[in-house]
Amino acid sequence: MSQASDNLVIGKIGAPHGVKGWVKINTYTNVPEGIFEYLPWILGEEQEYRVDQWRPHGKVLVAKLVNIETRDDAERIKNLDIRITAEQLPELDEGEFYWRELTGMQVVTTQGYDLGVVKDVFNTGANDVIQVKANAKDAFDQKERLLPFVLDEVVQAVDKVGRIITVDWDPGF
């Protein structure tokens, strides 16, 4: 089994549904039903669980996991994160990447100014944003910057092998 740090949270087990071990599923995947494409799930202390059955129920999804037979069993796993290993993610096409791959990458401007490293990536609704932790010797004395992750406008290149993101950005901003 992978280390917990190699695991990715893709959802959360919700409240029990009925008395036969079914649980509600809170999913973080783009397509809610897509959570069932990533099996087995890891819950709790690195315990693997397999989904026996699942179905939509109104606006939510419910699932019956193998060896979860009663409402008490379902209560025991309630609120646990649903995790998978990074190896379970699909391979991406050339030029595509997962947010987790961007974390820790060096960010430099097209003029060669080192802005720092990516601390986090998040979505604002309008576009994705990278939070860049500035270097200790930042000439502009900034602790962090938020840069829009807009390809071809701000982000000029992402070098996954070299772990460098090149941006068209004024270091003073």
Rank of each mutant, 00 (worst) to 15 (best):
residue 142 Q to T: 03
residue 115 L to I: 00
residue 15 A to C: 07
residue 121 V to A: 13
residue 17 H to L: 08
residue 44 G to L: 10
residue 141 D to T: 14
residue 96 E to N: 13
residue 84 I to R: 08
residue 104 G to I: 08
residue 38 Y to Q: 10
residue 144 E to V: 01
residue 123 N to H: 14
residue 149 F to M: 11
residue 5 S to R: 11
residue 121 V to R: 12
residue 157 A to C: 07
residue 139 A to M: 08
residue 37 E to W: 09
residue 1 M to V: 12
residue 103 T to G: 02
residue 159 D to G: 12
residue 161 V to G: 07
residue 114 D to P: 01
residue 127 N to S: 15
residue 129 V to N: 15
residue 79 N to A: 13
residue 154 V to W: 04
residue 63 A to L: 05
residue 118 V to Y: 05
residue 12 K to G: 05
residue 93 D to M: 13
residue 136 A to Y: 03
residue 38 Y to R: 11
residue 99 W to P: 04
residue 34 G to I: 01
residue 44 G to R: 09
residue 146 L to R: 07
residue 157 A to R: 11
residue 162 G to P: 05
residue 30 N to I: 02
residue 17 H to D: 07
residue 159 D to F: 10
residue 148 P to G: 12
residue 166 T to H: 05
residue 118 V to E: 05
residue 122 F to E: 02
residue 108 V to A: 00
residue 139 A to K: 01
residue 10 I to Y: 09
residue 55 R to K: 15
residue 37 E to R: 09
residue 71 R to A: 15
residue 49 Y to W: 11
residue 64 K to S: 09
residue 111 Q to Y: 00
residue 32 P to L: 06
residue 137 K to E: 01
residue 46 E to F: 10
residue 164 I to M: 04
residue 151 L to I: 13
residue 120 D to F: 05
residue 98 Y to G: 03
residue 96 E to T: 12
residue 21 G to I: 09
residue 164 I to E: 00
residue 8 L to M: 13
residue 130 I to H: 00
residue 69 E to H: 02
residue 156 Q to G: 00
residue 28 Y to L: 14
residue 92 L to Q: 14
residue 59 K to A: 14
residue 40 P to V: 06
residue 141 D to I: 06
residue 33 E to N: 10
residue 51 V to T: 06
residue 105 M to E: 04
residue 68 I to T: 15
residue 41 W to A: 05
residue 89 L to R: 10
residue 89 L to S: 09
residue 99 W to I: 06
residue 99 W to R: 05
residue 21 G to L: 07
residue 137 K to H: 13
residue 10 I to G: 03
residue 127 N to T: 15
residue 121 V to F: 12
residue 25 I to G: 12
residue 78 K to L: 01
residue 72 D to W: 00
residue 137 K to R: 08
residue 112 G to T: 01
residue 26 N to Y: 13
residue 45 E to G: 07
residue 89 L to Q: 11
residue 155 V to D: 04
residue 60 V to T: 12
residue 77 I to H: 08
residue 107 V to E: 00
residue 167 V to W: 00
residue 33 E to M: 06
residue 51 V to P: 06
residue 153 E to P: 01
residue 100 R to L: 06
residue 133 K to L: 13
residue 153 E to G: 03
residue 10 I to S: 06
residue 71 R to P: 02
residue 52 D to P: 00
residue 1 M to Y: 10
residue 16 P to C: 09
residue 57 H to K: 09
residue 33 E to R: 15
residue 71 R to H: 15
residue 58 G to I: 05
residue 12 K to N: 12
residue 65 L to N: 11
residue 123 N to D: 10
residue 163 R to N: 09
residue 16 P to N: 02
residue 36 F to K: 15
residue 8 L to N: 03
residue 88 Q to D: 03
residue 84 I to M: 03
residue 161 V to S: 09
residue 71 R to W: 07
residue 122 F to V: 02
residue 27 T to P: 04
